[in-house]
C-alpha cells in the first residue's frame, strides 16, 4: 500500500482519536496538577491532588470495595461461565433459544438491568427475595444499608450482567478443544470432572485468562449498576473508584475536579499496567 493511500485511510480515525480523546486526556492530566473547578482557570499545585487522593479515607474504602467486588465477581464469572458453557455445549436444537434467553442480561443497559435487579431485593417493590428469606426463617438482610450485604448484592448484579459474556467466550473456546484429546482422556478412564480439570480447562487457559482480564477491567469501571443498587454508597463505604471520581469531581459542582482528575490518572496507569501483556501480544502480532 502506498504511503499516501495509508494516510488517507487512517486520517479520519486518527483525527477523531486525537481531537476527541487525546485532547480531553491531556486536559485531565493538566487538571490533576491544579486546584481547579469548572468555569474558572486553575492554579498549579504540584502533586497535592495525588497526595490528597491517596490519603482520603473515602478513596481507601473505594479501593477496598472495588477489590472485594472484583475478586468475588471474577471468580464466580470464570467458574460459573465455565459450568454454564459446558451445559450449553451439550444442548442440541434448544441451543439458540437458551442462548437468546441467557443473553438478555448482557444486552440490557447496565443502569436498567441494575434497577430491575434491585427490585427483587427491595421491599418497596414487594422484594420477592426477602419474602423467601422470611419464609425460610432466616434473619432479615439489609441489602441497601448494610455494607457487606450491599457488596454481595452489587457483586451478584454484576455477575448477572456479565456471565453471558464469560459463557459465550468460554463456549467458543470449548469448541476449539480437539475431539481426539477428549477421546484419549476417556480411554484412559478419566471421569468427567477429572477431564474438565486436567484436560479441558488447561487447554483453554488462554480463553480463561482473557475472560479474567476483561472482567477485571469492566469491574474497575463499575458505575452504572451502583446508581440503583447502592443509593447510599457514600455513607456505607461502597463507592466504586469511578463513582468516587464522579461524586468528587462532578456532582458537587466540580469542586474537587483536580482531585478527581488525579484519581483518573492513577486509574489509567493501573489499567495500562494490567493491559501490558495484551499490548505486547498486539505489538508482536501487528509487526508480523
Amino acid at each position: 500500500m502506498r504511503r499516501r493511500e495509508y494516510l488517507y485511510l487512517v486520517a479520519p480515525s486518527v483525527l477523531v482519536m486525537f481531537g476527541l480523546l487525546v485532547i480531553p486526556l491531556v486536559r485531565t492530566i493538566q487538571w490533576s496538577f491544579e486546584r481547579v473547578r469548572y468555569g474558572s482557570p486553575g492554579t498549579f499545585v504540584g502533586l497535592d491532588n495525588y497526595r490528597d487522593a491517596l490519603t482520603d479515607p473515602r478513596f481507601g474504602s473505594a479501593v477496598a470495595f472495588t477489590v472485594v467486588v472484583t475478586i468475588a465477581v471474577v471468580s464466580v464469572l470464570v467458574v460459573g461461565g465455565y459450568v454454564l458453557a459446558v451445559l450449553v455445549n451439550g444442548l442440541g436444537k434448544m441451543r439458540p433459544i437458551v442462548l437468546g434467553l441467557l443473553l438478555v442480561s448482557y444486552v440490557v443497559p447496565g443502569l436498567i438491568g441494575g434497577t430491575m435487579f434491585s427490585w427483587l431485593f427491595n421491599d418497596n417493590f414487594g422484594g420477592i427475595v426477602n419474602q423467601v428469606i422470611r419464609l425460610v426463617g432466616l434473619p432479615e438482610v439489609l441489602w441497601f444499608t448494610d455494607t457487606w450485604a450491599n457488596r454481595g448484592l452489587v457483586a451478584a448484579a454484576v455477575v448477572w450482567s456479565m456471565i453471558p459474556f464469560a459463557m459465550l467466550v468460554i463456549l467458543a473456546g470449548l469448541q476449539g478443544v480437539p475431539k481426539e484429546m477428549l477421546e484419549a482422556a476417556r480411554m484412559d478412564g478419566a471421569g468427567s470432572l477429572r477431564t474438565h480439570w486436567s484436560v479441558i480447562a488447561p487447554s483453554i487457559r488462554g480463553v480463561l485468562g482473557f475472560v479474567t482480564l476483561i472482567s477485571i477491567m469492566d469491574v474497575l469501571r463499575l458505575f452504572d449498576q451502583l446508581i440503583p443498587l447502592s443509593p447510599q454508597a457514600v455513607q456505607i463505604g461502597n463507592e466504586s473508584l469511578v463513582l468516587y471520581i464522579y461524586n468528587r469531581a462532578f456532582l458537587d459542582g466540580g469542586q474537587q475536579l483536580g482531585l478527581g482528575s488525579a484519581m483518573n490518572v492513577l486509574l489509567i496507569l493501573l489499567i495500562v499496567v494490567m493491559l501490558l501483556p495484551f499490548i505486547r501480544d498486539t505489538a508482536r502480532e501487528g509487526r508480523s
Binding site: 485532547i23 486536559r27 485531565t28 478527581g260 482528575s261 499490548i279
Partner: peptide, 23 residues
C-alpha cells in the same frame, strides 16, 4: 494505532468525559 485503540477502549470514561463537559 492498534495499541492506542486498545488502551482507549479500556480507559475509565470519566477521564475523557469530565473534560468533554467543559469543552
Amino acid at each position: 494505532l492498534l495499541v492506542a485503540a486498545l488502551v482507549f477502549r479500556a480507559l475509565p470514561r470519566t477521564a475523557v468525559v469530565l473534560p468533554m463537559y467543559e469543552i
